[in-house]
Design a protein around this nucleic acid. Structure first.
Lengths: 329, 329
DNA sequence: CTGTTAGCGCGTTCAA
DNA sequence: TTGAACGCGCTAACAG
């Protein structure tokens, strides 16, 4: 690996001069700039990220904290979209990201996590799929040691930003569409995890619709589990005209339950995962753009890290607009 | 962030002494060890990876090079399994991995890729889903600049190792089972990508079976595409007793084709992805353990990097044994 | 067994 | 406008 020193020697200048043209400092004559660039080019010089990091304390990496859903691997698609959005954006911004699974951090205290991250020069966090129950992580975020961006959860402060789709509106819209399509009146709503953030917003959406249209609303918590949703549907499907679920997977479970007990009820999902295309049933769903959300999150964390989040940005939710299409499977 | 110097001062020893106990060097008295550990503990000291890396040129990161299959997101599951296996193993071995998508490297020359990796202190590669067509990467591996481990492709040299499941045997076994189950004689085999490595091995497996049982074998290349497999099945399904596919996705395509043209043929897949559980059809398939394979791959790359691959290891394929179960969906 | 010293590759003053 | 010199936090000889 060719070092900055070799470049300097080759170009006949000092190391610091090379460094300056590398980092676009002012006060370098065009002439020497040219010389240095030529040397860099001919020597195929590539600056050593590690060394640069050590020297200028500017360096910061961000951890992408995701869930590895071992039970319901259908969710892999979402995580994968998140990861690829983030990683690609990171490359574009030339910052470093490391992906971390919640499971890797399980059992650690907040302090231990802090130290673990710091030792890795991780100063920024993008947190996906956080739930209210996750005390350690909620503490971690609140501590403000790291610049964190939380996806789909409401955290805003000097060190924290939040990127989300408008879950309430999305749930409202898709359910409304379903209600109108079939002229339904009694709805079974299978919500997500009891203490999830998105769960709450989506719930608000369906409630608003119910109120507005004067619908009868039965609410159950399906914990985002296909099986749970199935059980719930088994029990209540016959008493309603429409089943609205807070996730596609639950929608599939509910739909299968209906088939089993041999009744037909329109079912409506949420997320728009590819799996929906394979179950051979017609279902309305909200297609989310996880990739774009994740890109926005990384963009946010960059902002936070660069310290450009002056007072002006505080309390200003970063709202990524919802991208969705109705899809019919 | 507390530094090694502070620890040294606090413990009343020299910096190098702290470093020694940190890295488990011999020749440090139990007494001073204790003092140092105490200091480390009380100061919450965490060594700075970056600095350690720069200093000891020992440091090496490994890139996990994966495919982001934008068309067939069902494949995300496989990639995700690969990633999680690798990342978890990496944590266990406390080495650093960075995930890289092929798409990020597209259009780069071998040289550019080399420099890109080197600038990031990446000296090890784990390459997933490589195909023969991928000239740049095949060149990259052959150059031997990086220690690489290739999953499911035959590369063995001083700097390269390969981790794979026995695709031939797996294909043979599952097809044999299918043949016996229904007493079939004429087989349509829908193979994978024409220049894929696994494609070839699986093909060998089915050919061996055909020869052994004196079966009639029609071979087509489905390019691992559901649609392609569907087309092929449309055309040839009626002339055979059994359809064997080199991937689950293709099996689903083939199965759907049969349904469309209203004939029944047993279909047999490969991979054992979760999606198979959602299509509501009975299918035999080989369940692979991508997680374990990936763990083994990282283990291998560690070996290569640590230079313990003396001559003795050359030409010794690392064969991860096949884990599979017949699953009926 | 312990401490001193010299780098690792680079960013960044501060003189010149 | 340039370059010498110092330091980032740590490892690795080498002396003592």
């Amino acid at each position: 690996m060719v070092t900055i020193k070799e470049v300097a020697d080759y170009a006949g200048v000092a190391i610091s001069t090379v460094s300056k043209v590398l980092n676009n400092y002012p006060n370098v004559s065009e002439n020497t700039k040219k010389k240095v660039r030529k040397a860099i080019d001919e020597l195929h010089y590539v600056p050593n990220t590690i060394a640069a990091a050590l020297s200028s304390k500017q360096f910061a990496r961000v951890a992408l904290i995701v869930n590895l859903n071992t039970q319901t691997q259908a969710i892999d698609e979402i995580t994968m979209q998140y990861l690829s959005g983030a990683i690609n954006k990171a490359m574009e911004k030339s910052i470093e990201v490391v992906t971390v699974f919640y499971s890797m951090l399980q059992g650690m205290t907040v302090d231990e996590i802090v130290r673990y991250f710091q030792s890795q020069s991780i100063f920024g966090l993008v947190i996906y799929g956080l739930s209210k129950d996750d005390i350690v992580f909620n503490d971690l975020i609140k501590k403000g040691i790291f610049k964190s961006v939380v996806v789909d959860a409401p955290y805003i402060s000097e060190n924290t930003s939040s990127v989300w789709v408008d879950n309430k509106k999305a749930q409202y819209d898709v359910a409304k569409r379903a209600v109108l399509d079939d002229n339904c009146r009694r709805i079974l709503y299978i919500a997500g995890k009891k203490n999830g953030y998105v769960t709450e917003y989506r719930l608000e959406g369906i409630k608003e619709l119910a109120e507005e249209k004067d619908l009868e609303l039965k609410i159950c918590y399906g914990e985002f589990s296909e099986l749970e949703a199935r059980k719930i549907a088994m029990k209540y499907a016959k008493d309603v005209d429409l089943i609205v679920c807070a996730s596609d997977l639950m929608a599939i479970g509910a739909m299968n339950a209906c088939i089993d007990i041999d009744i037909f009820r329109p079912v409506c999902g949420f997320d728009g995962i590819t799996l929906m295309g394979y179950v051979g049933k017609q279902m309305l769903t909200v297609r989310q753009d996880f990739y774009a959300v994740s890109q926005a999150a990384v963009e946010e964390v960059c902002l936070l890290l660069s310290g450009e989040n002056g007072r002006s940005r505080i309390m200003e939710h970063k709202l990524v607009k919802l991208y969705y299409k109705d899809i019919i499977c």
